[in-house]
């Protein structure tokens, strides 16, 4: 049995804890990304898809 296998074809919301920082990067299945410092507004935004998911990521280059 393989550990922690996630089916890549389903609609997933993913949150990365950005290495070496206190910031969380939220990645929607639609491709929208945004960084947060608090997981509560993070889930509001991420699970609120598609609302407000077309803007570029906060602090993006």
């Amino acid at each position: 049995m393989k550990a922690g296998t996630v089916d890549p074809d389903t609609a997933l919301h993913r949150v990365h804890w950005m290495p070496g920082t206190d910031r969380l990067l939220a990645v929607c299945h639609c491709g929208a990304e945004r960084a947060f410092e608090d997981p509560v507004p993070l889930w509001d935004w991420l699970l609120g898809h598609p609302e407000d998911h077309d803007r570029p990521a906060e602090g993006a280059p």
Binding site: V6, T10, A11, L12, H13, V15, P19
Partner: peptide
Amino acid sequence: TPITTTVDEEA
């Protein structure tokens, strides 16, 4: 150690 969190709402 930082974590990665993933949600599959449908499943």
